[in-house]
Every structure is written in structure tokens, then in C-alpha cells.
Write a protein that binds this DNA or RNA. Structure first.
Lengths: 204, 204
DNA sequence: GTCTATATCCAGATAGAC
DNA sequence: GTCTATCTGGATATAGAC
């Protein structure tokens, strides 16, 4: 096990160590997601989380600075996925079919992981506040979503508020009353038609 | 202070005691609502609640059997108010104006107390389960609401799901993004028109 | 890098004195 | 009817041994 290289051996070892550390941290965060899905977001305890990855709770502090830091990492991870989804939105011009498709994809994203939805879009974890960096990312992603909706070409801000309410309502009903199903998700296309017809936008 | 009546004096005293007890219990429940509005529903602690009504936490157990019992009393109280609102819905025939008015009142009820909304309609208090009696009341009230919406005369269940999604979405956006304001609440009338026009119901 | 041991704090709930 | 005292159990987090 002794080194046979002279200069960059310690550096390489440090890199390996770092990589290993990052892997363990990722494993911890994955386990935290799964635990949250079973026990609820607020139900994550450091004891139980440690047990899931084969450590005592205290040892986790070598990888996350605090419980808030853990939540923050999950928050960031969630918004990175959301950001990728928003970035995949095709460039204008926007058609009805594209709008339906993209809003459908957004709702699917929201609905596919209730715990993630709760962490990213609701404010229900006691005492959790995202770090400035993570918060900035969230603001960015949501601004991107707004921009993309602006391409519909409706000027009335009230109309846009109504659209976000429809999307939120479908999501919220789906999560609350038919989790895992599609009773409300499948109404998205019809809802978009209803909305666009009412405001005479994006004619077929 | 000695009794000057012979038979029903002890009974009257017992009635007074009972009445006093009920008053104290009501005071505790009121304080719990207020505490929940400040600290969140999950933030109610028996210690702090006791302090609010001038008792030690332990003494509360003379009035509520457990913390779950306290939540249950609040849950029941909330659904009693909701039930009264639903019962006030006028008899058919239903007009567009009446529908707008009643749905507006319902949304206003939901929005006027976020904590109550959370307790009644979301499932976010860890380990709280309503008693069978309270749950039955809730089912009753919601069934009444459904009946009343049935009077619109749209047969398509998907359409009714879309309507509930719209109402939920307006409520949810209002609570999340403009608490205390009316940015989404005021869109209810327009939303109802959009919905009814789309399905050709309740012509003006 | 993980452990044991521990500090600190808070929760809900019960027993029994006054 | 409210108190003091106490039980039980859980949480996050730190210090220091190995």
C-alpha cells in the first residue's frame, strides 16, 4: 500500500478521499428522501437516517453540517431537476399542443413525488429555511417558468394568475384525493383548452 | 354559603360546575387556535398552551384527554362552521349569480384562517386522526357541498373534478402567495364564468 | 471516519399531595 | 382543580477516544 509515485500521489489520494466523501453524502441524501417518503418530511430523524446508511446519528455530522443543511441539499436537488424541466421548454412560437404537453409535464413532475412537492413549493417544514444560494436557484427556476408562460401572449395579469391557479388546483387535488392516480392530471389538456378559449389565445 | 334548599341544590351545584368546566374547555380550545396561528398547528405544546390560560400543562388534562383530543375538538369546531356555511346554500334552482356568490363565500371561508384550512383539508399534522364522530361530521359536510354543486346540472364527473380543482387552486394560490390579500380570491367570478361557458351550463 | 459518552432541551403524560 | 414531582422517550448536536 506504500506510494510508488513521488509528487501527485498525496493529491490523488486526497481526490479519492474527497470523491468517496461526496458519494457517502449523496447516499445519505438519497436515504433521506426515501425516509421522508415513508415518515414524512418532518419525520426525518438523524438517528433513523443514520441507521439507514449504517451509521450512528452522530457520524452523519461528518457529511452534513446540520439537519437544516440536509433539508437544504434536498431542496437544491429538487430545484435542479425542476430547472432542467423548465429549460427543456422549446423556444417560441408556442402552440396549443406544446403548451398542453409542457404543462402536463410540469404537473407530472409535481405529482410524482409528494414529499418533494411539499419541500419545494409548500412551507410546511418547521424552521427550515433554504440557504441564500438555494433560494436564489429556486427564484431563478420559477422566474423561468413565468417567462415561459408569458409566451402565451396574454397580457392580462389576472388571466395568468388564473392559469397558475388551475395548474396548482389540478396538482393539489391530485395529491390530496388520488395520490398515485391520474384523476385530475388527465384533465390538464381540457383545462388548458377551456382557459385559452375563454381568453381567445393560441387559436387551434 | 350553606344551602337553604333541600333537594335540587346539589344538582344545581353540579350543573354550575359542569358549565364552568365547559367554559374553561372552550377557553383552552380558543387559546389553542390562537397559539396555532402564531406557531403553526404542529407547534402547539401543552406547556405553552397551559401558560396561555394560566395553568401548568398537566392541569390541561382535566379538560382535554390528550393532545389528539384537543386537535379533534378544533377539527370538529371547524367543520361545524363549514357545515353551517354549506347549509346556508339556497335551494334550487341555481343561477350563475348564486353559484358565484356561494363559491366565493366558500373560498373566503377557506382563506380567512390558514391554520383552520390546514387542519380541516390538508393532512399535515403528524399522527393526528379525527375521532370517528368528527370524521363522520366532516364526511357529511363535504357530501353536502358535493350535492350542492350537483345542482349545476353538469353530468360529466370530469367537469365537476375540474371545478373543484379550480376552487382548490384559487384557494391554494391565495394562501401560499398572497396571504391576507385577495389577488386570487377576486378571480372566482371570472373563473366560474369560464367554467360554465366551457360546458354550456347555467346560461346567463 | 466512526464510535461512545454526554450535554441540553423539549415533548406528552401520570401520580399523588394539598 | 391545580399544583409539584416525576416518568419516559425523543430530538439535535458536541467532545474526545480509538
Amino acid at each position: 500500500m506504500s506510494g510508488n509515485q513521488t509528487i501527485d500521489e498525496p493529491t490523488a489520494a486526497a481526490g479519492r478521499r474527497e470523491r468517496r466523501r461526496a458519494e457517502t453524502r449523496a447516499e445519505i441524501i438519497d436515504a433521506a428522501w426515501q425516509l421522508a417518503r415513508e415518515e414524512g418530511l418532518a419525520g426525518i430523524s438523524m438517528r433513523e437516517l443514520g441507521a439507514r446508511v449504517g451509521m450512528r446519528a452522530q457520524s452523519l455530522y461528518g457529511y452534513v453540517a446540520s439537519k437544516n443543511d440536509l433539508y437544504d441539499a434536498m431542496f437544491r436537488q429538487g430545484y435542479e431537476v425542476a430547472g432542467a424541466l423548465v429549460a427543456s421548454w422549446p423556444a417560441p412560437p408556442l402552440t396549443r399542443a406544446v403548451l398542453k404537453d409542457r404543462l402536463g409535464a410540469w404537473i407530472a413532475f409535481c405529482v410524482e413525488d409528494p414529499v418533494r412537492y411539499q419541500l419545494l413549493f409548500q412551507r410546511t417544514i418547521p424552521d427550515f429555511e433554504p440557504s441564500p444560494a438555494s433560494y436564489a436557484l429556486a427564484v431563478d427556476v420559477l422566474a423561468g417558468l413565468g417567462e415561459v408562460l408569458g409566451a402565451i401572449g396574454i397580457d392580462d395579469p389576472a388571466a395568468m394568475d388564473l392559469l397558475t391557479a388551475i395548474v396548482t388546483g389540478l396538482t393539489s387535488q391530485q395529491l390530496a384525493n388520488d395520490p398515485g392516480g391520474d384523476r385530475w392530471v388527465r384533465l390538464a389538456g381540457e383545462a388548458v383548452d377551456m382557459f385559452l378559449d375563454h381568453y381567445g389565445a393560441l387559436p387551434t
